[in-house]
C-alpha cells in the first residue's frame, strides 16, 4: 500500500462538517503551537543547561509574577475562543430546520431500523434524498446506542425510554458511514450500516419500490423464520440457488448427512450451518470449490440463528 495514499481526514459531506473542520483546524493550530514551543524549549534547556555545560547560572533565579499572569491570560483568551466558537456551532446545529424531512430510527441490539415518512422501512441502510435536511427521531428498544455519521460530524445517543433527535443536511450523493458509537454489547462493532444519499428521483423510486421494503420488513420481524428467510434471500440464494449454483443446493437439506471433500460425511445441524457461515473452509462440500467467504462480521449471531431457523423450517429431511 502506498503510504501517501492513506486517507487521514474523514469525508466532508455537509456544510456543517466543513465548519467543524475549520474549528478543528483552529484547535490544531493552538495545540501544535504549544506543543512545539514547549517541547523545543525543554530540549533547548536540556542541552544548554546540561550539567556538564559551563553555562552561567546565577545563584538563584527569583520567581516572577509575569509568567503566571501571561500563562493564565493567554490560554484563557485562547480557550474562550474555543468555547464560544464550539458552543455557537453546536447551538446553530442543534435545532432542526422546520422543513426537515422526518425519519424514525429505532436502535435494537444489534441493528438500526428506519422508517420513512410514507411508512417504508429499511434495516441498517438509510436512503435519503440529496439537498434535503433530514431529521431523525430516535429511540431504542433495549440499551443505549448512538447514531453516528462521521462524514457529517454528527452523533446522538439513542436512549431507551425517550426520544432523541438529530439532523443533517447532505450535500452530495454518495454512500457514507453509519456507526453505533455507544457500546451496546456483543455485536456493538457489527451494528454498522450505510447512509445512501441519492438523487430525489432515485429516492422517489426507492420509496415506491416494494421489494426492498418488504424484505427489510421481513428482516425486522420478530418471527425468526420470517426474518431468516429475508437473510437467506439477501445473502445466500445467489450461490445456493439450486442446480448450477456456485455452491451446493442446501435449501431443503437441513438435518441430512452431507458428504465432504475428505470423504467423511457430516450431519447438517445447527452447529454445522453456523460454522459453515463463519468458517466455510473448515469443511468443504464434496465436488465444490472452497469459494464461500466467511460472513464473520457481516451477519450477527441473531441473523445466523434466524437463517438456521428458516432452513430448519423448510427442510424435507426428518430431524
Amino acid at each position: 500500500m502506498n503510504l501517501l495514499a492513506v486517507k487521514t481526514r474523514p469525508v466532508v459531506a455537509s456544510d456543517y462538517a466543513e465548519e467543524v473542520d475549520a474549528l478543528y483546524n483552529y484547535l490544531l493550530g493552538v495545540s501544535v503551537f504549544f506543543t512545539v514551543a514547549i517541547c523545543s524549549v525543554i530540549v533547548f534547556f536540556a542541552i544548554r543547561y546540561r550539567r556538564q555545560s559551563d553555562a552561567d547560572r546565577p545563584e538563584a533565579t527569583k520567581d516572577g509574577k509575569l509568567l503566571e499572569i501571561l500563562g493564565s491570560v493567554i490560554p484563557f483568551i485562547l480557550v474562550m475562543i474555543m468555547f464560544f466558537w464550539g458552543a455557537k456551532l453546536y447551538f446553530d446545529a442543534y435545532m432542526p430546520p422546520k422543513d426537515a424531512m422526518e425519519i424514525l430510527v429505532t436502535g435494537k441490539q444489534w441493528m438500526w431500523k428506519m422508517q420513512h415518512p410514507n411508512g417504508k422501512r429499511e434495516i441498517n441502510d438509510l436512503h435519503v434524498p440529496v439537498g434535503v435536511p433530514i431529521k431523525l427521531t430516535m429511540t431504542s428498544e433495549d440499551v443505549i446506542h448512538s447514531f453516528y455519521l462521521p462524514d457529517f460530524r454528527k452523533k446522538m445517543d439513542v436512549v431507551p425510554g425517550k426520544y432523541t433527535q438529530m439532523w443533517f443536511h447532505p450535500r452530495e450523493e454518495g454512500v457514507y458511514h453509519l456507526f453505533c458509537a455507544e457500546y451496546c454489547g456483543s455485536e456493538h462493532a457489527l451494528m454498522v450500516g450505510r447512509l445512501h444519499v441519492v438523487s430525489p428521483a432515485k429516492y422517489e423510486e426507492f420509496l415506491s419500490s416494494g421489494g426492498m421494503g418488504a424484505m427489510a420488513e421481513a428482516a425486522a420481524s420478530d418471527d425468526p423464520v420470517v426474518a431468516g428467510k429475508a437473510v437467506w434471500e439477501a445473502n445466500c440464494v445467489i450461490c445456493h440457488s439450486g442446480p448450477g449454483g456456485i455452491g451446493p443446493n442446501i435449501h431443503k437439506a437441513f438435518g441430512s448427512m452431507r458428504e465432504l471433500e475428505t470423504g467423511e460425511s457430516i450431519l447438517m445441524d445447527d452447529d454445522y450451518v453456523r460454522n459453515s457461515i463463519l468458517n466455510p473452509n473448515d469443511d468443504i462440500a464434496k465436488g465444490y470449490p472452497a469459494a464461500m467467504t466467511s460472513f464473520k462480521g457481516q451477519l450477527n449471531s441473531t441473523q445466523i440463528s434466524q437463517v438456521i431457523a428458516y432452513l430448519k423450517s423448510v427442510s424435507e429431511a426428518d430431524q
Binding site: S31, W85, K155
Partner: peptide, 22 residues
Amino acid sequence: LVGGLTGLFLATMAINVHLHDT
C-alpha cells in the same frame, strides 16, 4: 501536554459531538 491539549478538543461542544466515543 499533548493529552491535555486534546482534552480541549473534546471539551469543545461541536467537536465533541464528532469525537465522542471514537
